[in-house]
């Protein structure tokens, strides 16, 4: 049996075709896979009656992880939306925390059982707290970027949402203001083809959300959101440019929601099996593995080892989280107002 190389051994040198190092590629694969396996375990727990609600990002892992890796962790900010498990994992969330959040446990640092699952937030990690209302976070991102610009802090804010959210007024108000003030924001649209049951042609009369960038005087770009490497290669230069004062970007990652809207939704009502099968062939995790294997970046055993590590982590996290304390009923009270 070939010796498994540890992460420490991975080269930090950029590989030309990738603009990413071996170490970064491993991280990319690990986070995408962890997001998927966590989501799978979450849905299983839901079907077993152990988790009341799941809203997942299956099919969007490349779009999420590729973009988040283009940011500086601990410096840049993200204002994610409820499918962005992958973004959160890159920004420091681990499997245990993801499971605490799913089960609304007392010690979930995102919402302490006070919000539905997947409503993330962590001030220290620069993950902005979010509600279920879509597109509101784009304005929060603009406010952070405005404040950072006023203080000459060289940060970038990435605000993400689905294409359905771009119908809301807050989307337009955010792009307009950011354009006027040339703020360091990336508006990142994960176009997964559906707003619950509505296809994009019910949401907009144009093909690309990114076309709207022109109307606000900002940069626009479209990227294949099923390809994590391509996503990184598109977002990273945009991040550098907006950090340098080049103004905001509207980047649209074309991806696909492989699962129903949520654990309460039945997508057979509004889309065909054939459509699903076609997109499943473009599964971003499968595509990634095929590419790095065929390019011989990692031996297959290494990728298998990562898969095993992820499976172990998810299993352990689910068991551990289930044993963690629930909030007490009266934990509903408190922190209505911040006291300093």
């Amino acid at each position: 049996m070939a010796a498994v190389r540890t992460r420490r051994d991975r080269s930090q040198t950029r590989i030309d075709d990738y603009l990413l190092s071996e170490a970064q590629l491993e991280e990319m694969y690990y986070h995408m896979l962890l997001a998927r396996r966590l989501n799978e375990r979450m849905l299983a727990l839901n079907r077993q009656g152990r988790a009341p609600f799941v809203i997942a990002g299956a099919g969007q892992e490349a779009a999420q992880v590729g973009a988040a890796m283009a940011l500086k962790k601990g410096i840049d900010y993200v204002a994610p939306y409820y499918r962005d498990l992958g973004v959160n994992l890159v920004f420091g969330m681990d499997a245990r925390e993801a499971m605490l959040n799913l089960l609304a446990k007392r010690d979930d640092p995102n919402a302490f059982g006070r919000q539905m699952p997947s409503h993330w937030g962590n001030r220290e990690r620069h993950v902005v707290t979010q509600s279920s209302v879509v597109a509101t976070q784009l304005l929060h991102a603009v406010g952070i970027a405005l404040a950072a610009k006023m203080r000459n802090d060289p940060i970038v804010v990435l605000a993400s949402c689905g294409e359905g959210s771009t119908s809301r007024g807050d989307f337009h108000e955010a792009l307009n203001f950011a354009g006027i003030h040339k703020l360091p924001v990336i508006f990142y649209i994960e176009n997964n083809g559906y707003a619950i049951t509505e296809r994009t042609d019910k949401e907009m009369a144009i093909e690309h959300v990114a076309d709207r960038a022109r109307a606000y005087g900002i940069h626009g770009a479209v990227v294949d959101g099923m390809d994590a490497i391509r996503v990184y290669q598109t977002v990273a230069p945009a991040v550098a440019e907006t950090r340098g004062g080049g103004g905001p970007y509207l980047i649209e990652a074309k991806c696909y929601r492989l699962w129903a809207h949520s654990s309460d939704d039945d997508d057979s009502r509004y889309r065909t099996k054939q459509e699903l099968e076609e997109w499943a062939r473009k599964d971003p995790i499968k595509l990634f593995r095929e590419r790095v294997e065929s390019d011989r970046i990692f031996p297959p055993e290494d990728l298998d080892e990562i898969e095993q590590r992820v499976d172990d982590e998810v299993k352990e996290a689910a068991q551990w989280a289930a044993s963690q304390p629930d909030p007490a009923p009266e934990d509903a009270l408190g922190f209505v107002y911040k006291e300093l």
């Binding site: 204002a79 807050d170 108000e173 307009n176």
Partner: peptide, 18 residues
């Protein structure tokens, strides 16, 4: 600000958070 009240409040939220 532009004539857009949601943005005035939403942007203030972001700036205050920062």
């Amino acid at each position: 600000s532009p004539l857009a009240e949601s943005s005035i409040i939403g942007i203030s939220i972001g700036a205050a958070h920062y």
